[in-house]
């Protein structure tokens, strides 16, 4: 595990998990229980429900959801979305470069791969500092939204 501050496999106890995913459906993996393989991928779905790439695109572009375009560019979205960010790599062809499990880890917590990254961890609650109370104990995206975004990313082929 690259970050010494916290680890996913740590037995977090029910407290955090219960607090964080009050809305979790049976079968949904809480942010403290995600199974990361070799620090490089999360092969298993977080919900067991297949991701929907159409819903995933809305999560990807939604400013109050993933807001992924704040930092990344996607050529196929240029016509419908103004102002793509430049602070992170373009995602064209990302599905050719990474497996589904690698994409899932990148969205869930890219700090496992690169400790210094500016990319937020979209499915994580612990190890954060001075979180606004509106978001305290909440993940940025729900487990199903993560699955939907991963499904959308898998459509980005060149």
């Amino acid at each position: 595990m690259s970050s010494p501050l916290w680890t996913y496999r740590m037995a977090l106890g029910a407290a955090v998990a219960a607090l964080t995913v009050a809305t979790a459906l049976a079968g949904t993996v809480g942010p403290g229980d995600v199974e990361i393989v070799d620090d490089s991928a999360i092969p298993a779905s977080l919900t067991g429900v297949a991701g929907d790439p159409v819903a995933g695109k809305d999560v990807f572009t939604g400013r109050k959801l993933g807001n992924c375009l704040a930092c990344h560019q996607v050529s196929s979205l240029m016509d419908e979305q103004q102002f793509h960010g430049e602070v992170a790599p373009p995602l064209d062809g990302v599905a050719d470069r990474y497996s589904e499990g690698e994409l899932r880890l990148q969205v869930v917590n890219s700090k496992v791969i690169n400790e210094d990254t500016l990319m937020p961890a979209f499915y994580r609650v612990e190890g954060l500092n001075r979180v606004n109370e509106k978001f305290e104990g909440k993940t940025i995206l729900t487990a199903q939204q993560v699955e939907d975004v991963v499904a959308y990313l898998q459509t980005l082929k060149e």
Binding site: L118, P120, A121, N129, R130, V131, N132, F135, K138, I140
Partner: peptide, 9 residues
């Protein structure tokens, strides 16, 4: 240089 907030930057 301290990361803060839910976006952790």
């Amino acid at each position: 240089y301290t990361r803060v907030g839910q976006l952790d930057m």
